[in-house]
Structure formats: structure tokens, C-alpha cells
């Protein structure tokens, strides 16, 4: 609800602003959209944190496995169970998982980028109309 976070105006502010600026349908739509984008932004940021951590872990394991013996059998987690598989197969599966998560991270970052772009544009428009009577900062 940050977009609705209008602070109370002091008497001086009220005089400086003069007549209340009318909220038109299109203004309301913009405020709603900004609010929605902001909550999406937060959600995606959290999701990205989780995914990045997962990727880091996968990278760590990949490095770790490079030191392993070629004939080693490694317990690899699939679902809730560990399957004991040869090193080469584990490395292959690890590669697939890493590629998958990298794809997901890229997708999320793209989404985040376009959300932020849209928010910047909306901020410009809303501040131009409402000036100090609206507060769009976190």
C-alpha cells in the first residue's frame, strides 16, 4: 500500500497546494498499477535471492566433484531420496540442473527489469500530476 501512503499536509502545505487535485479514473488506474508492480517487484526479488543461492550451491558442488575420483559413486538427491550414481552421471545431471536454474534466473531478471522500467515511467507521470501530495518512495 505504499502508493497510498499519503502524508498529512500541514496548513502551509495545504495552502501551497491550493485546491485538491482531482483523482481521475486514469490517475487511479496508474496508482493501482504502481502498487501492483511494486508488490511484484518485492516478490521477484525474493524469488531471485532463493534461486541465486541455489545456483551458488550447484556451482560449489560442481567444483567439489571435479576433485572426486572418476570411479567414485556419489549419492545424488532426486526428490526425497539419494540415488547412488557414477560420478559422470552425477556431473551430467548437475549440468542439466545448473542450466535450468540459470534460465530461470535470467527470466526473472528480465521481468524485474521491465517492471522497474514501468515503475519509473509511472513515477514521472504521477509526480507530474500530484506533486508533493503523493508519496511513491519506499
Amino acid at each position: 500500500m505504499m502508493s497510498m501512503n499519503r502524508r498529512m499536509l500541514s496548513k502551509e502545505d495545504e495552502e501551497a497546494v491550493g485546491d485538491e487535485i482531482e483523482v481521475r479514473r486514469e490517475d487511479q488506474d496508474k496508482i493501482n498499477k504502481f502498487s501492483r508492480l511494486h508488490s511484484h517487484e518485492t516478490l521477484i526479488e525474493e524469488e531471485l535471492k532463493v534461486k541465486n543461492k541455489e545456483k551458488e550451491e550447484l556451482d560449489d558442488i560442481t567444483t567439489e566433484l571435479e576433485l572426486a575420483d572418476e570411479d567414485d559413486i556419489v549419492p545424488y538427491k532426486v526428490g526425497d531420496a539419494f540415488f547412488h550414481i557414477p560420478l559422470s552421471q552425477a556431473q551430467e545431471m548437475l549440468g542439466v540442473s545448473t542450466a535450468k536454474i540459470e534460465g530461470e534466473i535470467e527470466e526473472l531478471e528480465d521481468k524485474l527489469g521491465s517492471i522497474r522500467e514501468e515503475m519509473t515511467q509511472l513515477k514521472v507521470e504521477l509526480y507530474a500530476r500530484f506533486g508533493r501530495t503523493i508519496n511513491l518512495e519506499v
Partner: peptide, 25 residues
């Protein structure tokens, strides 16, 4: 997703003859 992953993994092994060792919860 977990169940699906496991089923897909088991499917890879249908042509093998030896059992696979697992540690399961």
C-alpha cells in the same frame, strides 16, 4: 515436482538390468 523428478529418473533406468542402490528417508 519431487515426485515427477523421481519418476523421470526411474524411467531413465528401465533398460538397465542391475538394481540401483539408494539412501532413502
Amino acid at each position: 515436482q519431487k515426485t515427477l523428478d523421481t519418476v523421470r529418473f526411474l524411467k531413465l533406468r528401465t533398460d538397465e538390468s542391475d538394481p540401483i542402490e539408494t539412501t532413502f528417508e
